[in-house]
Amino acid sequence: MGAALLDRLDVLGSLVAEGGVAVLSGAGLSTESGIPDYRGATGRARPSTPMTYQVFTGSEQARRRYWARSFVGWQVIGGAAPNTGHLAVTSLQRAGALAGVVTQNVDGLHTAAGTADVVELHGNLGRVVCLGCGAVTPRQELTGRLAAANRGWAAEVRGVHADGDADIDDATLDSFTVVACTSCGGVLKPDVVFFGERVPPERVAASTELVAGARSLLVLGSSLTVMSGFRFVLQAAKRPIPVAIVNEGPTRGDAYAVAKLEAPLGAVLSRLAAR
């Protein structure tokens, strides 16, 4: 690390040493686990269009195509392990430095790393919810049922996004078989917030309360492009409490930060935890 980065790391270290840090994490924290982020270092959105709630609920064909891509993508997301950044956040929490953790990620890696009481703002791909009866079941159970219903089905994978949506050949999508809820025969959906879907108000309230009682806000690996995360930077700035950002690339919140570090998150957070 250069002298300028070390200076900013000192600012970060001072904030963490005071305790009461609210952490807001995004997809950039999970890239070192092999999960691509949404926009990369440039901050530009991915070329493909993500699934929206309206399209998913309104079209059987859209659901078939979504589950085909997600069936493939889950092999990457479900097999990912926490990286040094996730483990460092857990270490900071156990050292008593954190007020709490809010994540925009749906990969469950904070919890897998041992971080407690994480507010999963956008849900978790490891769970499946029935839109008919509301039953919540493990993703692995659905994966087994989909595998049994699609023996012999295969697709060429060109990439996987942070939301578990795989980029595969369109020609293979319509031959995929979707299964229904075993309890009521209803439509199954991953327990995540799609574009166009409202973040559950209890999660927003829990996150807002966390930032309201924190001494500082630390943003990790998020471009803050969507308002669901950026709102907490605005809340922190309004109080005001210090905002620090660690992200490879520009963010929407840079103007509000007392310190901005553009460096690999695993290295920065490991140094921070070691202090």
Rank of each mutant, 00 (worst) to 15 (best):
R63G: 04
I35L: 04
E197V: 13
T143G: 10
Y38A: 11
V160F: 00
Y256A: 04
S222D: 04
S175W: 11
G196M: 07
V89A: 04
E202V: 10
A80H: 03
Q140C: 07
S14H: 10
I245R: 08
D170F: 07
Q75L: 12
G19C: 04
L92C: 09
V187F: 01
G152F: 05
H122E: 06
L12R: 01
L121F: 11
Q235R: 12
D37A: 12
S216E: 12
E60V: 14
G40H: 09
L265A: 13
T182W: 14
A257L: 05
A45F: 13
A45K: 12
S183R: 15
Y38P: 02
G43Q: 05
S175F: 08
D7H: 10
V129P: 00
V179M: 08
A95P: 00
R203P: 14
V258L: 05
E156R: 15
H161E: 14
A171N: 10
Q93T: 10
R69C: 13
R69D: 09
A22L: 02
L269M: 12
A99T: 09
A99C: 08
L5C: 03
V243L: 09
L24D: 02
G79S: 15
C181R: 11
R39E: 07
A267N: 06
V258M: 05
R139S: 02
Q54F: 09
